[in-house]
Design a protein around this nucleic acid. Structure first.
Length: 730
DNA sequence: TTCTCTAAAATTTTT
DNA sequence: TTTTAGAGAA
């Protein structure tokens, strides 16, 4: 038997050796499904059934995609047989679709320079639409409207779809959806849901493109299949339609994304779609102790909507008891965790990297972080306010985004507001209206002289036919003007600064644009076959690894640095904009980090793309973090913990109204989802599990009193060791 | 019309 | 505790 197949149990082996035809793997928590998926890819490669570019693996998080790529790489490196032709494609649904659309967006009526709107961008757009339609903002909220749009996009229903079923009080939503689609198109922008939607549309409308990709991706594997929604399932089925070599892995007990449209039906109907499919169950758990497994099973058994099954383990002894900590308030809850972490390290030989603290809501992290800082326990926080969502990062990037895609009105608005131009809401709106009414981008409108009525630009009359007029301006003006503006009174609005301000902004943008154009080669692989491109990419990667540096012409860090300096952002932060000095220092650090992160990209589009959909802080940290991770405790939500495992797991905030969350209580189905979430959390633990709750918790400015979570009562008492706070710690 | 200061609101989960 | 909205000042 080949080396890489050793140590697998019968079911795992069967799954790994399965070659052609559809395959459904029902894999319980900790049953080694990642290992199975990666080894299956390795097997296909080693036996020559597939070239690396013939394999497509789809996951939900970038973390999981990276992990699988790494494992395959390691397995291949260890073995004897050499496999050439690069690496298999393992990516998230969203990044896979984005790559696809970057190549073919023109076929569905987009420019290839389209931008990706993140949640923040699309919320803002929806809010603007609601305002412009004069709807009652109390009743029609952006979040409800967004939900409507999302729901329909996920069901592959476009804005022209039939909404005859909407109730009378919902009649405004289709109108908003329609306007939203129009605006996104005008901005040459796609939101997260469009990535999926448009990928499906691309394949449906262009059979020749579909043909090309279905021949390329002969083997498709989907991880966490229980979390796919309608359109994701559709995409995969279209793509796998020809070869039908589709392998999906899922566990109905770990379905925790129904709020995003995920449906368990995709698993249930898989066997109907592919009657010939093989079904393999992985029920042996290799991860957790008996006690942990029993507690998890006891909880998930409370769900009515599930396939009955029990995870088995070979472990003889039960392992440590599960610790339940009853805290008096959230401060002492954190204090207990910090104290216990120190004890685990001191007495039980664990290190920080073995430990994770999980919680239901991101807002819980602050109190915990404060405590860990006080106790000098190093930690790494995942999720929460993502790096690329930070104000200063979005500000700086908005200049780049606007320069790359001059139709992006949102980035135009954002970038111009970063700079003291003297142009405010009104002026910006006027320019946006002129541009969209004439069907031009902002920059074209400017060059055609359409902004001659704008204060600050009209003085330049007669110059509009010379596009390089702005090159004469001293573009360092913004950094100079900052201290004056900061010193309040004097520099309010003298007309001279008006003129230079707004014109200088455009000069700055033009300069960025020309820098980008001279530095970055666009997507020129139109005429290449996809396979050739993939192969080339593989070789390029090898070349980089071999020679050390290939990206010698990477000017991205220079360009970002240029924006940072000449927009006056740097001097603004140095002069101190916010009350707290640390906050400004922090922002400067973040921008430094942005510049560092950009070093790894030689294509600005790729850089901007990953800033929208690959928003993983740890990924950004690269080597340094991989090294420092070892010394850090992990903090994350229960959702983002899925797929991971830790020797020691703390789950904080097991209270009614927090976990299960209050917003899930009106609906038995969503309580069941909370219960599955709890199951996911518990099964992350290998050796020790701590469940904590707090009688009193500070939310905002006042306190809330909660009862212990129903989930705590569902765990058999004999598995639990209870500790109760004897004091209140602040 | 833009900028600044003060008061009020805000907290589910993610690509 | 931090971010946003609205009112008043320049």
């Amino acid at each position: 038997m080949e080396d890489y197949l050793k140590g697998l149990n019968d079911e795992q082996l069967k799954a790994v050796l399965h070659e052609d035809g559809p395959l459904l793997i029902l894999a319980g928590a900790g049953s080694g499904k990642t290992r199975v998926i990666t080894l299956r890819a390795v097997h296909l490669l080693k036996t020559g059934k597939a070239m690396p570019y013939n394999i497509l693996g789809v996951t939900f998080t970038n973390k999981a995609a990276r992990e699988m790529k790494e494992r395959i790489k390691r397995a291949l490196a260890n073995g004897s047989g050499n496999v050439s032709g690069g690496e298999p494609e393992f990516s998230t649904f969203h990044s896979f679709c984005l790559k696809l659309l970057r190549r073919h967006a023109d076929l569905i009526g987009y420019e290839r320079s389209f931008v990706v709107f993140d949640e923040d961008d699309s919320s803002k757009t929806v809010a603007k639409i609601i305002k412009s339609l004069n709807l009652n903002e109390k009743i029609i909220t952006p979040s409800k409207a967004k939900y409507f749009i999302e729901k329909n996009k996920n069901s592959f229903i476009n804005a022209e779809g039939s909404f005859s079923t909407v109730r009378a009080w919902e009649k405004d939503y289709p109108v908003i959806y329609s306007e939203y689609s129009k605006r996104l198109k005008e901005n040459n922008a796609m939101d997260f849901n469009d990535l999926l939607f448009n990928a499906v549309k691309l394949f449906q409308d262009n059979p020749q493109v579909l043909e090309k990709y279905s021949n390329l991706y002969k083997y498709i594997m989907v991880d966490e299949f229980q979390d796919t929604n309608y359109i994701q399932d559709k995409l995969i089925k279209i793509l796998a339609g020809k070869h039908k070599n589709i392998c999906v892995v899922g566990d109905d007990d770990q379905s925790i994304y129904s709020f995003r449209g995920a449906t368990i039906d995709n698993i249930l109907s898989f066997e109907k779609t592919y009657p010939s499919c093989a079904v393999i169950k992985l029920e042996r758990n290799y991860r957790s102790t008996k006690n942990i497994l029993n507690a998890a099973s006891a909880i998930v058994k409370g769900n009515k909507m599930r396939k009955d099954k029990t995870l088995k383990t070979d472990k003889k002894s039960g392992g440590s008891a599960i610790t339940v900590y009853n805290a008096n308030n959230d401060y002492s809850e954190s204090y207990y965790m910090a104290k216990e972490i120190r004890r685990l390290i001191r007495e039980d030989g664990y290190s920080n990297k073995d430990i994770a603290i999980l919680y239901r809501a991101n807002s819980q992290s602050r109190v915990i972080e404060d405590r860990l800082i006080k106790e000098s326990i190093r930690y790494n926080i995942y999720g929460g306010l993502k790096f690329y969502q930070r104000k200063e990062i979005k500000d700086i990037l908005s200049f780049l985004r606007f320069a790359v895609n001059p139709k992006d009105l949102l980035s135009f608005e954002r970038s111009i507001q970063c700079v003291p131009t003297g142009a405010g809401e009104k002026t910006i709106k006027t320019m946006q209206d002129i541009a969209s009414n004439s069907g031009e981008s902002i920059l074209t409108a400017l060059e055609k002289g359409l902004f001659s009525s704008i204060r600050g630009l009209k003085e330049l009359k007669g110059a509009e036919k010379q596009p390089d007029i702005f090159s004469g301006f001293d573009i360092s003006d913004f950094s100079k003007s900052v201290p004056a503006a900061a010193s309040a009174s004097a520099a309010a609005a003298p007309s001279q600064s008006d003129v230079s301000g707004i014109a200088n902004y455009f000069a700055l943008i033009k300069k960025i644009k020309s820098e980008i154009e001279s530095a970055v080669k666009g997507w020129q692989n139109t005429n290449e076959t996809v396979a050739a491109a993939a192969e080339k990419k593989g070789r390029a990667a090898e070349a980089v690894a071999g020679s050390g540096n290939l990206a010698t012409d990477n000017k991205l860090p220079d360009i970002i640095n240029f924006v940072y300096k000449f927009s006056g952002y740097e001097s603004m932060l140095k002069a101190g904009v916010s009350k707290a000095v640390e906050l400004d220092a922090n922002r400067m650090d973040n921008i430094e980090e942005l510049i560092n992160a950009s070093v790894e990209f030689d294509d600005i589009t790729e850089f901007l793309d990953q800033s929208a959909i690959n928003d993983n802080r740890d990924e950004q940290d690269g080597d340094t973090a991989a090294g420092s991770d070892i010394t850090k405790v992990s903090l994350m939500t229960l959702h983002s913990a899925k797929g991971l495992e830790f020797p020691v797991v703390f789950i904080a905030g097991l209270e009614e109204h927090l976990f299960p969350h209050i917003r899930s209580l009106d609906n038995e189905l969503s309580v069941e989802e909370e219960r599955r979430l709890c199951y996911v959390g518990i099964t992350r633990a290998k050796e020790k599990l701590y469940l904590t709750w707090s009688k009193r918790r500070r939310t905002g400015k006042d306190y809330k009193y909660n009862m212990p979570s129903r989930f705590l009562k569902e765990i058999p008492e004999e598995l639990i060791e209870e500790i109760t706070d004897t004091y209140e710690y602040y």
